[in-house]
Design a binder for these strands. Structure first.
Lengths: 317, 317
DNA sequence: TCCACACGTTTGTCATGGACATAAACGCAT
DNA sequence: ATGCGTTTATGTCCATGACAAACGTGTGGA
């Protein structure tokens, strides 16, 4: 067997690359056929053996595609132009406090200082309160960590550690709120294929302080079960989260189906990076491309709901 | 476009089935070719359209394969024999307390009573203490929930709710312990392809009360990064968790590679349902097929470590 | 009786190359 | 600029063939 042995010269087979990059085997072969990249060596058995360098490049390309670029345009570009594209998109306006904190957190991650990380996050949380923490600190921080990872300044395991610690911090803070029984009742989850649950937690962290009652199903709930769960729990709102990597097409289809199945009294929210790439409007689905817009959306739901309730009450008389 | 419309007559394409069942497209086509099942209808474009019934059956078969059965033996069996096989394996000896609790929890899940679920779990936890709770309550409960799901008595979303609530409960309990700085320092994670993190949390719940210092990276850490993380954090132990669905072959390869890369002073643990199916012994990797064995393994690590430290100290003199 | 090893069978994964649906980009008329 | 039809780009699916590793079984020796 030709198994991967050493780190520098390690070779990956096509399924390993699929796992690592999120690009399907079909796509990997098709790109090779059409664009000539990646063009891995073959082993004695004719199987593709990808190098670490190819995988890294594929990851970079995938990342750019996730923000809307098209493979044909970027796949042949030399590495430095790829880097330029990446940096170009990465420098949004920063306020005064963020950069300092970001530097601190990145430094802690690079030092692998777990207690320090926990302390810093917990301190910021206490200082700002949960909602402000999520909107003003976590959001840019996630971005900074993501960019640093993409730039190769941060290893995968360092990013994992960050995510994990963040989840612990937020979960603790959310639990500290008294259990709510107010309105609206919100169902939170992601669809199959979306393994990132951080967004759900962030939304929950914004809603719970507003008195909403959140029921999280975790990640990857089949569409049908989202439907059934919404009815079973009698929720007012279904909130789905999609990371940048989620295929827009699949999301649109799923959202349309869900919208069709659910009664109109249940509102559907779709949030996360992916929603920025949605072109056509999805009727009956509220897009929340920006986390900060969540609270506004909640307010407008409440206004709307007050009217509907009033109308329903009138109808029952 | 032929999109899924209604629930009962809903048809799924091959990638949807891949997501739902965890069986790759290649396998689905191969089974059709070799065994004649599943044999889905085709749409106008010649694409496979699987029915809900086929997917349900595929799930049942997958589940049986995950506990060691081989497709050729079971794929042609009629449904009732499949059910019999499933039940056969599902009736382990129960102690006095478990069945009652299991019934309670299942009833709460079916009633979609979130507060009740939280209360029951929290109460049991308080009554038993974290470690006993994990070993004696959670383990059989997981089994009961899994079986109920397989029997079709529980919907996916109900199982998701259970998992989510359980994670919240355990995470809270773990956080209540003072932050440890003792030995051993343990790195916890799963490999790419393994999305189930419940096992990690359960191990953490067993280790933290013993004074171990746990660093969890969450799920799906690339092998290389497990290696790097272990070195960066200077851990004594790397613990990996594998659910029943994880391919043994992939796991063995990965564990062997990891073992080769890590210094011998770092112990590697592999736990979870999958490890029950491992045939050949993996040299230098401690298999923990039973969660209850974790504490024993920790004890024996400590004994061993005391000897090694002594030896090292002697060597330095 | 039990273990080790050789050998046939089962099973999953990979490869190739063709087809096609649909989203995106483009060009043209209003 | 906006809307609409056409072309191009791109991903997904299909069929079939090949093969290696895992599994299981039978045989001979300790």
């Amino acid at each position: 067997m030709n198994k991967p042995i050493e780190n520098p010269g390690m070779l990956l087979n096509i399924s390993a690359v699929e796992r690592e990059t999120g690009l399907s085997k079909d796509v990997l072969r098709m790109w090779e056929r059409r664009y000539g990249f990646p063009k891995p060596e073959r082993n004695d058995n004719g199987e593709r053996q990808y190098t670490i360098a190819e995988v890294a490049r594929l990851r970079a390309i995938k990342r750019l595609m996730d923000v809307g670029m098209r493979p044909g345009k970027i796949i042949r570009l030399p590495q430095d132009e790829l880097d330029a594209l990446r940096d170009e998109r990465a420098a949004p306006p920063r306020d005064a406090i963020a950069p300092a904190l970001e530097r601190d957190i990145l430094a802690l991650l690079l030092r692998h200082d777990v207690p320090g990380l926990q302390n810093t996050l917990a301190t910021m949380l206490m200082k700002q309160g949960l909602q402000q923490f999520v909107v003003e600190t976590i959001t840019p921080l996630n971005r900074a960590v993501g960019d640093a990872w993409m730039r190769g300044e941060l290893q995968v395991f360092e990013e994992h550690l960050y995510t994990e610690q963040l989840q612990v911090t937020m979960r603790t803070a959310i639990n500290a709120f008294p259990r709510q029984s107010g309105e609206p009742k919100v169902l939170l989850t992601t669809l199959p294929g979306e393994p990132h649950g951080l967004g759900l937690l962030m939304v929950e962290a914004l809603l719970v302080p507003e008195g909403a009652q959140c029921i999280s199903l975790g990640v990857q709930t089949p569409l049908d079960d989202v439907h059934r769960a919404a009815l079973a729990h009698k929720v007012h709102l279904v909130a789905l989260s999609f990371s940048a990597a989620f295929p827009v097409r699949q999301a649109s289809e799923a959202l349309a189906t869900l919208r069709r199945q659910l009664p109109t009294t249940i509102t559907v929210w779709a949030g996360g990076e992916m929603t920025r790439r949605v072109r056509r409007t999805l009727s009956g689905v509220v897009l929340i491309p920006d986390l900060a817009a969540t609270i506004g959306a909640l307010k407008s739901w409440r206004t709307h709901w007050a009217q509907v309730s009033h109308y329903l009450a009138a109808g029952e008389r």
